[in-house]
Structures are given as C-alpha cells and as structure tokens.
C-alpha cells in the first residue's frame, strides 16, 4: 500500500470526520477508491452511484498494483456535504473496496486529465490551432494535410479552455480520459 503513496485509513471513521456545518451548497469532490481488481467491481461502484442517485462527473479506473491485484478508481462527484459523506460511507461498505479517500478534503492534491483533440482546417485556422497548441503545451500526435490530433494533459479546467479555443478552429472530435488524482507530499 505504501508503495502507492496512499495514506491508509485516514478516512476510516468517516462518521467522525464530519464537518460541523451541513450546508445545502453543492460541492465538487475527487474521491480515490482502492479496490480489488476483480470482475464486476466497477459495476458495483457505478451501480451504487446510479442506484442511489449520486452524480458522476468523471470516472477513471485502472490497475495500479499488479502483484496486489488492486485497482484505483478516481471519481469526481458533486453533492451537498451530507451526500458526499454518504457516498464515501456507501463506497466503504462495498466488500472489495479497501480504502476511500476524499482528496478534496484530505489536504492538497494534484489532478490531471489527458485528452486528444482532432482539429481539421486549412490556412490561417490551421496555423492558429498549432500556435495555441504550443501555448497549451499540447503535442501533435498525428498530422495530415487537413488535420491534427493534439495530445494535451492538465487539469479539467485547462482542457475545457483548450476545447473552447479549438471549437472555432475546426474541432472535430474529443476523447478525454477523466481525472486521475493524487494527494501532494507523503
């Protein structure tokens, strides 16, 4: 576990860690869920969200510890503080879930997302797209005479901003991975 840089058990007694103020304000939280990499585990997590009416803004999953057969699911969700606490508690009682971390409240964290943008155009628009891609530190991973595929990494906000800029320049298709996130420091 320690190799994965996850503080173990810091959210074990979620009921005790409630913030005193139960406001009605909707918050955005990034949750990191460590699960056994077994058949159906993603369906359990998604089924929990759909069955109980919680939101999923973004979800990524991949095996992160091959020997320990553990996968990490990163979920960006929204809800009032009470709903967020309930989501964490409900996730925690799924049997193959080992740990649930709320990166939004457990200190500082970094969030990154990768996206691919296909932009088609000619002349000035094509030059402008390339110039903006350079500013955003996007890489060209495919190129034809009529199109580029850009690869960009960053926070979801940065990728949103890049999408806004590409739209008038001939944006054809977007593929985004969803958020991957880790807490800062050790």
């Amino acid at each position: 576990m320690s190799a994965l840089k996850i503080k173990k058990g810091s959210n074990k007694h979620s009921a005790y860690n409630l913030r005193p103020n139960f406001s009605d304000v909707t918050e955005r939280h990034t949750l990191a869920v460590l699960v056994d990499n077994e058949a159906g585990v993603l369906a359990r997590v998604i089924g929990l969200f759909s069955g109980r009416g919680y939101n999923i803004e973004s979800l990524t999953v991949a095996e992160v510890d091959h020997l320990g057969k553990l996968s990490r699911i990163t979920i960006v969700t929204t809800g009032t503080p009470q709903v967020i606490e309930q989501i964490k508690a409900q996730l925690g009682r799924i049997v193959p879930v080992h740990d649930v971390h709320d990166l939004t409240v457990e200190g500082a964290s970094v969030e990154r997302e990768l996206a691919l943008f296909k932009v088609a155009g000619e002349g000035d628009k094509r030059v402008e797209a390339l110039r903006l891609a350079d500013i955003f530190r996007a890489n060209v991973v495919d190129s034809t005479l009529e199109s580029f595929v850009f690869e960009i990494t960053g926070t979801p906000e940065k990728i949103d901003a890049f999408a806004d800029l590409m739209r008038p320049l001939g944006l054809e298709e977007v593929a985004r991975t969803g958020v991957a996130a880790l807490s800062r420091g050790v």
Partner: peptide
C-alpha cells in the same frame, strides 16, 4: 455497525460506529 447508516437520514450528535 454500518457507518453509512449514520447521518444518512438524521444527523447524529454522538455517532458510534
């Protein structure tokens, strides 16, 4: 014994899991 029961419906002043 189930942490998800606590504060699901009624806010507990003294929660004991």
């Amino acid at each position: 014994i189930d942490p998800s029961s606590i504060n699901k419906v009624i806010r507990a002043d003294i929660p004991i899991v």
